[in-house]
């Protein structure tokens, strides 16, 4: 059969010579290879001290966004939940009352919003489905936790801090995460 590329190397099936059968020489050759690796640069990223730059498309922990007036963008339309292949997102909607206009952008909002991080596969489909720019996958890991309960993230955990009411809130939140 004709080879498709010139990359293939035919296996040498000729009987081994005496020196090859001695095996010792080849062992020494192999040991030289491993020895040379002692002086190679380690590609290891020493994680807590060194952090690798996330790629711009990294999909990490979710955040719920606010608009420029500090109001929640989410209207509990359920598109993220229906897009979610892992069925990790659940929510419960409520109607905005008079006087709550500074809290919620639209007349409907998510009274409860939960992401089960145990189920989430961080595919980012919720982010793509969202018509209100409300949910984003940030460049943060979901931190480890001692209990399974700790992975049920509710709205308080997901909402980004309101920088209009507390100017340092974002820095504080980032400081906790760092």
């Amino acid at each position: 059969m004709q080879a498709l590329t010139n990359k293939s190397i035919a296996v040498n099936r000729s009987p081994m010579t005496f020196w090859e059968r001695m095996y010792l020489i080849n062992i020494i050759k192999g040991m030289m290879i491993t020895f040379s690796h002692m002086f190679k640069k380690q590609p290891t990223v020493r994680y807590p001290e060194q952090k690798r730059e996330f790629s711009p498309v990294f999909r990490g922990l979710h955040v719920l966004n606010r608009d420029e007036e500090g109001r929640e963008n989410c209207t509990a339309c359920g598109l993220c939940a229906v897009a979610c292949p892992a069925e990790a997102i659940t929510m419960e909607a409520a109607e905005r009352l008079e006087g709550e206009e500074h809290l919620y952008k639209e007349e409907k909002y998510a009274a409860k919003y939960e992401i089960n991080m145990l189920r989430c596969i961080f595919c980012g489909l919720c982010e793509e489905a969202c018509p209100k720019d409300a949910i984003y996958l940030s460049e943060t890991f979901a931190p480890a936790n001692y209990t399974r309960k700790g992975f049920i993230y509710d709205k308080n955990d997901l909402l980004i801090p309101n920088t209009l009411t507390d100017a340092n809130a974002l820095a504080k939140a980032k400081g906790v995460e760092a």
Partner: peptide, 18 residues
């Protein structure tokens, strides 16, 4: 009867953050 409001769910809004 009608749509739910924040008050419907407000029983434990102050759950500590994770």
């Amino acid at each position: 009867e009608g749509p739910s409001h924040g008050t419907t769910f407000n029983n434990n809004i102050n759950k500590p953050n994770k």
